[in-house]
Design a protein around this nucleic acid. Sequence first.
DNA 1: GATGAATGAGAGTTCATTCAT
DNA 2: TATGAATGAACTCTCATTCAT
Lengths: 234, 234, 234, 234
Amino acid sequence: MPTATWWNLDGDKRARIVDAAIAEFGRRGFSAGSLNVVAREAGVAKGSLFQYFDDKLDLFASVCDACSRRIRDEMGIVMARRAGEHAELFPFLRAVLVDWVRYFEEHPDDRALTFAVNLEIDPEARRAVRAVTNAHYRDVLEELVSAAQARGELRPGASRDHLVAMLLLLLPHLALAPASPELDPVLELHRREGLDLEAAVTGFVDVLEAAFAVPAPPSAASDPHPSPTRGART
Amino acid sequence: MPTATWWNLDGDKRARIVDAAIAEFGRRGFSAGSLNVVAREAGVAKGSLFQYFDDKLDLFASVCDACSRRIRDEMGIVMARRAGEHAELFPFLRAVLVDWVRYFEEHPDDRALTFAVNLEIDPEARRAVRAVTNAHYRDVLEELVSAAQARGELRPGASRDHLVAMLLLLLPHLALAPASPELDPVLELHRREGLDLEAAVTGFVDVLEAAFAVPAPPSAASDPHPSPTRGART
Amino acid sequence: MPTATWWNLDGDKRARIVDAAIAEFGRRGFSAGSLNVVAREAGVAKGSLFQYFDDKLDLFASVCDACSRRIRDEMGIVMARRAGEHAELFPFLRAVLVDWVRYFEEHPDDRALTFAVNLEIDPEARRAVRAVTNAHYRDVLEELVSAAQARGELRPGASRDHLVAMLLLLLPHLALAPASPELDPVLELHRREGLDLEAAVTGFVDVLEAAFAVPAPPSAASDPHPSPTRGART
Amino acid sequence: MPTATWWNLDGDKRARIVDAAIAEFGRRGFSAGSLNVVAREAGVAKGSLFQYFDDKLDLFASVCDACSRRIRDEMGIVMARRAGEHAELFPFLRAVLVDWVRYFEEHPDDRALTFAVNLEIDPEARRAVRAVTNAHYRDVLEELVSAAQARGELRPGASRDHLVAMLLLLLPHLALAPASPELDPVLELHRREGLDLEAAVTGFVDVLEAAFAVPAPPSAASDPHPSPTRGART
DNA sequence: GATGAATGAGAGTTCATTCAT
DNA sequence: TATGAATGAACTCTCATTCAT
């Protein structure tokens, strides 16, 4: 945990350090990331970093925390807006996932750090940073799913946990795959743009909807989502 | 690519080196893995490694290749057996995914290396090792899905690509999550064993089946899989 | 270029490092010279050298720079004195070249490093260190020759550039050959001492004078330098 | 000295080894040159090199010997032809030096090795290779000069040794400087071609002629070489 | 509180040479 | 005679962390 000194720091300096660390860890990951570089790019003395943080891992965890907080806040705003537009879970998810992908398109530094967090292999470091973000993701998703369930949108026998688990798998994937060729060799998200990318993204929601939503009444000829990913290339 | 020297080597020594490398890279990943350790544990001189491989990455790629070949071969046998037992895609997948999870339970070294491959952050290394395994996974899965499609098991409008993409997401997840608390904070695969674990695994297939399989005829009151993951805790 | 740290350093430590580096590079040249040895002999940690210099070449270049500056300063004093004694170019050169040879006799470390500079085969290193010294030599020599030309001491049709070029060839030769048997198998400068060495050195100036100086008036029976190297063994 | 095995070797293999070694030592010098590379490029086993030569230095010396023999033989032919065209020393030298420069233009491998020989800093290696070539150069030059002296072409009081010494300085310089910017920052031989290069080369002979040749009789208004480097830029 | 010099272990890689086959 | 696998010391360079100022 950051020292008291860290929190007493001039906000500007704090921001410089956080930004430099996000950039460096995003570029090379935790283990290979260099505190030399962070200090140099932040314009602070190398020794100062150790006045603010116990050690490298403490800095990494703090920076990841700051970054994920930033993402959460931004996405919170977006989700609030989308919630006004879409009352039901799956249409809402379609809109929000597209926003989610766009967010990382527009914040490559956050994406790079998310990458680093998801790919950190050192057990201690991984545990430290993922515990927080995981808990947050899970809380948000479980609330969404529970609300939908309460509204009767989910098929009664379906496993709510599997729905949440798959969303938890999809979120980092959709954030990272558009920037990383080898993450999605099938849909090739890194080669898509604009509407094409959106179609691939919403296609995943179509799958979940087909699996988890209460089926439309049989009479409905105009079922809006009769099957997964209508229109996506098959 | 390994040098000619490597292939001329005594099989026993080759095995010692591969095992030592799998262990070290599985433990610390490619970037942080130490050739000093590999050499020491294999009982060869550090310099000798460079008689066999161009550089560290070459060793890593070769070892990953050997490991993934091993997995593929083993799973090939399993899949052949399961194919005899289950004519249809989703029942077949249920059986095979359970085998898949069990394989990694029983081969912790292979799992650790798979972990390292999936979490490698160095772009060059990641590209080198994932290109191969990705292609392999994709080929196998696409063939399975195409065959099912040809047999008329898949709902006509569904996006085959999304089915393959989700399976590609699930495979590493199911291989690794049972050994890694922070990968699945919802289903908590790492806390499950035996039938409980199997249920969670097959639950994912239930989801896919509900989304992609041709719906059972409306008259059938005894639809065997009317909804995802019956029986899983909801 | 050395880092800021280098210049903030205690002067004594700086001197120890420079001396150790001059000794090591003088002994084994740039490519074969070992930073391990430099660090050990200077009594600093190996890693410290990289706090002061970007890399090995940076250290080498800095040390060469310091050394050539030292030589230049010393020779500047000597030349000023000799300029007072000899108004004309060639007598002046005779005196200065003898001083030049003596300087390196008395500063074997500087000579060894000059040796290393002149014999460095690595193209990048050679370029880095020779560019500086070359420019300096050339500037000094061209000024001397131009002044002589302005005073009407040079034969009108002679190529001033060839005079400078030959002096540029002679300078390192005279600095190094007295310490290096294989550089001058004819005059065998390394076997000469005192007046004998001086005679051989001034003999070169006699050649240049005979070639470039305005011939003495025909009536002068007492031409001071009627032909090259009178007195040298023929 | 090469072993007996070396001389019993198939001539083709011997040539392959010599060529590979010339290329490698020419490229990186003796100390940095790698026997690995030599063996690989020659297509022989690394161990074989040690059947033919005592050690690295022995190979280097042998290869230098072969190369300098090659140069000597070629130049011997050229000199014989030029001797027929020019009876007097200095015109002869003009022609031969131009041939000399051209030889190295046309044999970059020989030039590179000559470079390596002249720039080798390791004392043992330097001594081993330069002793041979020096002796050869000196013998040839002394014979030329003695013959000229016998023909009465040299000014009586001039130091024959200084003439030879300067030629010994000029030969490697003219061989190498056209390929090496930092060797001649005044005449910039590396930027000259064709007639311009020839003029610079013969300019050096003009200097020597002006210094050492018997002056033309005072009445001769048409002295062909009244002063150094007529026509070269002054 | 801030600095930045110092450290030494450890990294990957290269190398000439040896020697059993 | 020819091979090529084995070696281990040496190389340059990086790093997180400490601590006197």
